[in-house]
Amino acid sequence: MKSKCRGASLIEILGVCTIMAVVASLSYPTLAGVIADQRMKTTVSQLRLIIKSARQLAVFEGTTVTLCPSADQISCSKEWSDPLIVFTDPNHNEQVDNDEILERQLELKPGEANLRWSSLQPYLQFNREGFTRATNGSLRYCPQDQTKTNSYRKLVISRSGRVRISQPERGLSNDRLNQDFGC
């Protein structure tokens, strides 16, 4: 008996390739959205972690700890697009002195998002009990693409030093979104 080996014809292969190309082109926008959403969640998680670690450091070391943006990693700036630093600051002067230790730093990828800090002071300080010094505040995460309203986040730091994450409600108007999240 002869066995007949039969392969796929050129037209069948072209048909399968066409179907695969159509499916891939339809799924690309969804995949790009999933990747952007994961980047946002990772960044917000990193921000929350650096705030919580600054608070923990203040309690464990029994001293004031400052979290702030800094272009030179020595003194605090008011520009929250600069890398963030955490350091012990017993003299409350918002800069890393010779006897103070730079404990952590966090640099966001350029162009990923804008951070906006809302508080009475342009920095965040924790005292040795883990409370913020004199004020609470909120750190807003604003995506570069302002149309992605589901990517807005606000890290709210209470006077007791606790952090909670707030996000916009579904269907929120752009005016209300700007009012609530200030992006």
Results as ranks from 00 to 15, higher is better:
residue 50 I to N: 02
residue 51 I to C: 02
residue 51 I to Q: 00
residue 54 A to E: 00
residue 54 A to F: 00
residue 54 A to C: 12
residue 55 R to A: 02
residue 55 R to E: 02
residue 56 Q to C: 10
residue 59 V to C: 14
residue 60 F to T: 15
residue 62 G to D: 12
residue 63 T to S: 15
residue 64 T to C: 15
residue 65 V to T: 02
residue 65 V to L: 14
residue 67 L to P: 00
residue 68 C to D: 03
residue 69 P to T: 02
residue 69 P to S: 11
residue 70 S to V: 01
residue 72 D to V: 04
residue 73 Q to E: 14
residue 74 I to M: 09
residue 75 S to M: 08
residue 77 S to F: 11
residue 79 E to V: 09
residue 80 W to A: 05
residue 81 S to G: 11
residue 84 L to I: 04
residue 85 I to V: 06
residue 85 I to Q: 02
residue 85 I to H: 02
residue 87 F to V: 00
residue 87 F to T: 02
residue 89 D to N: 03
residue 91 N to D: 15
residue 95 Q to N: 13
residue 95 Q to T: 04
residue 97 D to Y: 05
residue 99 D to A: 14
residue 100 E to H: 06
residue 101 I to V: 11
residue 103 E to M: 12
residue 104 R to G: 02
residue 105 Q to Y: 07
residue 106 L to T: 00
residue 107 E to K: 11
residue 107 E to V: 11
residue 109 K to Q: 12
residue 110 P to C: 08
residue 113 A to M: 13
residue 114 N to R: 07
residue 118 S to Q: 14
residue 118 S to R: 12
residue 121 Q to I: 03
residue 122 P to G: 09
residue 122 P to M: 07
residue 122 P to H: 09
residue 124 L to C: 05
residue 127 N to F: 03
residue 129 E to H: 06
residue 129 E to N: 06
residue 130 G to Y: 02
residue 131 F to E: 13
residue 131 F to A: 13
residue 132 T to P: 00
residue 132 T to C: 03
residue 132 T to M: 05
residue 133 R to V: 03
residue 135 T to S: 10
residue 136 N to V: 01
residue 137 G to P: 01
residue 137 G to K: 00
residue 138 S to W: 04
residue 139 L to H: 01
residue 139 L to C: 03
residue 142 C to K: 04
residue 144 Q to I: 14
residue 145 D to Y: 08
residue 146 Q to N: 07
residue 146 Q to G: 07
residue 146 Q to D: 08
residue 149 T to V: 13
residue 149 T to Y: 11
residue 150 N to P: 05
residue 151 S to D: 15
residue 152 Y to A: 04
residue 153 R to L: 04
residue 154 K to P: 02
residue 156 V to T: 05
residue 158 S to V: 00
residue 159 R to P: 05
residue 159 R to T: 08
residue 162 R to A: 08
residue 164 R to Y: 09
residue 164 R to C: 07
residue 167 Q to H: 10
residue 171 G to Q: 13
residue 173 S to K: 06
residue 174 N to A: 12
residue 174 N to L: 13
residue 174 N to W: 08
residue 176 R to C: 12
residue 176 R to G: 11
residue 177 L to T: 03
residue 177 L to H: 04
residue 179 Q to C: 08
residue 181 F to A: 04
residue 182 G to H: 14
